[in-house]
Design a protein around this nucleic acid. Sequence first.
DNA 1: CCCGTCGCATGACACGTGTAACTATATGTG
DNA 2: CACATATAGTTACACGTGTCATGCGACGGG
Lengths: 348, 348
Amino acid sequence: MPSGMTQSPEPTSPPATPTSTDVARLAGVSRATVSYVLNAQAAGRVSTRTQDRVRAAAEELGYVPHAAARTLRAGHSGLVLLTTPATPIPRIGALFGDFLMELQGALHQLGYTSVWHGPVAGAGEQAARAWAELRPAAVLALPGTGLTPSAVELLKRSGTRAVLTLGMQPVAGAHALLLDQEMLGARAGTHLLERGRRRIGVIMPTESGLDLFSVPRLAGVRAAATLETGTHVEPLTLDCTEESAAELAARWPRLGLDSLFAYNDEYAMLVMRAFQDAGLAIPGDLAIVGADDLLLARLLRPRLTSVHFDTIPTARIVGLVDRAIREPETAPETHQLTRVVVAARDSG
Amino acid sequence: MPSGMTQSPEPTSPPATPTSTDVARLAGVSRATVSYVLNAQAAGRVSTRTQDRVRAAAEELGYVPHAAARTLRAGHSGLVLLTTPATPIPRIGALFGDFLMELQGALHQLGYTSVWHGPVAGAGEQAARAWAELRPAAVLALPGTGLTPSAVELLKRSGTRAVLTLGMQPVAGAHALLLDQEMLGARAGTHLLERGRRRIGVIMPTESGLDLFSVPRLAGVRAAATLETGTHVEPLTLDCTEESAAELAARWPRLGLDSLFAYNDEYAMLVMRAFQDAGLAIPGDLAIVGADDLLLARLLRPRLTSVHFDTIPTARIVGLVDRAIREPETAPETHQLTRVVVAARDSG
DNA sequence: CCCGTCGCATGACACGTGTAACTATATGTG
DNA sequence: CACATATAGTTACACGTGTCATGCGACGGG
């Protein structure tokens, strides 16, 4: 007993974490009364004087209820789990980070404790096992989480009331919140075609995890191109380095392209710099379109045309989460979260 | 019972989440045996044949242990809690995000479940209460969390074995992992002074939460300036907008300064653009130094001089966390996490 | 005086798990 | 044969909480 106090008069002095039993003893009531009072179920059951005594005792002891015990008794926890992608992680843009923060705040206001689970070893069902141990009320799988139908099944069997995915395509059994990357690519393609460009290069980053986004974006550009005759779409892999960008710039004349969809604004900046250093004119020799519409886009010269998602409607999401938790039997729903708009500027 | 199946032959058919009791029944053994087997405590206690039977039964039922029950019984959870800043959040840079991801991975390998707790309503002791409910093994408070000594006290009283802060200054009772922002500012100042600059402007962003970083950085520049005679340091508040930057550029000639520490690379880009649009030469009319040393810095023209932290030593941190959990009685330690280096380029 | 009612508080159980203590059956050992 | 010893399990309890059913005293109506 490494207590700091030298003289402890009571022989039984465990400075352990106080439980509701300790509160009850100090207040001179039963544990049941404490529970009723502290959970605001005391109306008409406990006299106000007793309520005050209980609250004072809890305060004095610094009582904090034990979430595990409460969860065990209740059969469910108020936890909403956000999962981390198994792959090293697609770089989470500033917009997406803000969105997550807002989402968590809204969930908190509804009484849920939202928690972002760290990365786990396995994928699919094995990862789901780790999440299921916490018996969360809901699991919201972020894009890049390898959520399989069998993982959804496992989660539901262990009592998870709602499983939702935030991502590009639905997963069987789970509610789907869709981020339509294909539409984003389509808008970029349409924009370039409307400006008379016909041979579009599309940057495909090699960064692990980003293919989740880049592949459907490319598909979107292709889809847009089929609506116009005499078009060509060329995927161009690119490392996130100056060297790779310079190499692309050197190779550009031989490619016979007239425009570029650069995956996002940061990659757009990278290649734009390389092209300019190589003596190519923008938008004269080639048009460039980015994505995300960061402040960055307006700071470049020429100013960068960029396509981005409208702000994600947090309220609708937490509404769905709440409803899904309350009525777990409702059939999985699919929601398109975003509308895509192009901010046209000088680069193409 | 809103079950979809119409005919349920067994009268007692709770498709509820299976417990270890169910596994025991299916395997034809006692619950204790199941526990021993599934926790790898079966050596010399349970025959291999029985072990196989138990594991098969668990697999068949899709058994997932109940973390709450386990926590309750064990008296502690293997949770390591990362806290979210109460303030809207200092924009988490890409570097810091990568660091957190790496940290969580390393903790996972040591058997801890790391979890990033969402934002909570109150601050200080009230927030600590919310964290304490989960009875985490350790709490790692990220920069911007308003962790007070009394909050540390409360956490420890409710059984948290280790409380650590990642931030600018130590908190009484908690281990401190220091990110020396002041040194970062000092290096920036020294660099400019060495190049003959004497009148240094320092960008102070108005974004909420960033003052946590900007104030000590300013102090660092000031400290460096006192080592040289005839110097002047001028703080300059700036919104993260083009207008604010343009306004600063217009005002610049009247300020009588010859150099600028721009808080970080992104702000540096913002003001550099405004200065160039206003016809000022860099580094001729003024030198600019950024921070973080992003790829961005090498893409700007002139290339941006930037000061940044060496990579944060994840291994040392998880080592400390692990040790602090195992030996909670060890006195709080203070660790400087980072060394600061200047990447000198063309902007100043 | 008895019975129903109301206000206030309590006893007791269940949630699912880990583990110390114990039992029962075989295996040597003197 | 008696006795230690290993093997293969089981029984029983504790962790901290929420809540149903119950108890107890007082009050009012018949």
